[in-house]
Computed example of a mutant assay.
Amino acid sequence: MKHLLDRPVWSALQSGHAALAEGSEWARRYPPSIVPFAACADNSKESLEALQSLPAVGEVMALVEAAPVVLPEGLTAVTEATLVQMIAERPYERISDSRIEPLTEADAEDMLALATLTKPGPFTLRAQSLGTFWGIKMDGRLIAMGGQRMRQTGFAELSGLCTHPDFQARGFGKLLFRFVAGEISARDETVYLHAYIGNTSAIALYTALGFHLRSEMNLRIVKRRS
């Protein structure tokens, strides 16, 4: 039986993030100014044609699903990778820490700069449109952050977790991980996340923190030809 997280982008744009969806009943995407993710309903001719029509010529989209990603003729893959999708084995307790604060639009440029430096995944100035982010600052400087990305019925993706290289190995990432997971669990939603399959250190950390592998996932970054 298929799981709604097998096609996480489509499921999110049908439920928790339906208000952000662009497209039709056959294919949808997030506004590219927020995040480049897109998906089609299935691999039917109608869905693939609708997916092809979403981007402008030369525009990039990111497709993620458990099954091999099928492309219409008008889209070409520019990057391919394998991810792991991990899911929490249990709810997380809500915690508090005076160093953690909610981030706002005023922090957007600092958030993008930190994400650009550490590369936790696709990130834009409008990432906060997807969900709340929290951070740790030192002398007014954002040094670590974490938040939420895709949301489906009963699930929320922990994402954007990163720490400035000058402040790594001090426990900030683990603290924010537990904090964000607790905030998601407090809404009675199950926490899940994605990581590149080759990022063995991160996968080991997530396993130690109570996550298990749900599925390998296929990522294809695609571009419209003409």
Rank of each mutant, 00 (worst) to 15 (best):
L161H: 10
E93V: 03
P36Q: 05
I100M: 02
E65V: 04
P120N: 05
G58D: 11
T76I: 11
D188E: 10
F177L: 10
K137T: 00
G74Y: 11
E101M: 02
K2P: 13
Q14A: 09
A156K: 01
F179C: 07
H17T: 03
S53C: 08
F37L: 03
G147T: 15
E73G: 08
L75E: 12
S226A: 04
Q168N: 11
T104H: 01
D139L: 11
M111K: 04
V78Q: 00
P32G: 10
G121H: 03
L51P: 06
Q168M: 15
A21N: 05
E65C: 05
S215E: 08
H194A: 09
A108D: 13
L161G: 15
S15K: 14
S98Y: 00
V70R: 09
A195E: 06
E157K: 04
H17C: 04
T76L: 14
M138T: 07
S96Y: 08
Y196R: 14
F155Y: 01
E73H: 12
I184C: 07
L51Y: 14
M86N: 00
G140P: 01
P68A: 09
V84A: 02
G135Y: 08
R220P: 04
G198R: 03
A195Q: 00
A208F: 12
Q14N: 07
V78W: 00
K45E: 02
A12D: 06
L117C: 09
L51Q: 13
G58P: 05
A19M: 01
L103I: 13
S159P: 02
R170D: 00
T76W: 08
V69P: 04
P68W: 14
S33L: 03
P122A: 13
S226K: 10
T200N: 09
G140D: 04
L209E: 05
Q168V: 13
L176H: 15
S185Q: 07
K174W: 01
R224Y: 01
R178A: 08
L103C: 08
L142G: 00
E22L: 08
T200F: 06
A62D: 00
A12E: 13
A81Q: 13
K223M: 15
A18S: 15
T118G: 08
G146M: 09
A66F: 07
V60D: 15
V9K: 07
R225T: 04
P8Y: 04
G121C: 09
M1L: 12
R7Q: 00
V69S: 06
L213D: 05
M61A: 05
L54I: 15
D139Y: 15
Y196M: 11
Y206F: 12
S159R: 01
A113K: 11
Y92E: 00
R170N: 03
V57N: 06
L48H: 15
S159M: 06
K137C: 02
G198K: 02
S47Y: 13
E25K: 00
G140W: 12
A202N: 02
H17D: 05
M61R: 12
I100V: 14
K45M: 08
L213H: 01
S129A: 03
L13R: 06
I136G: 03
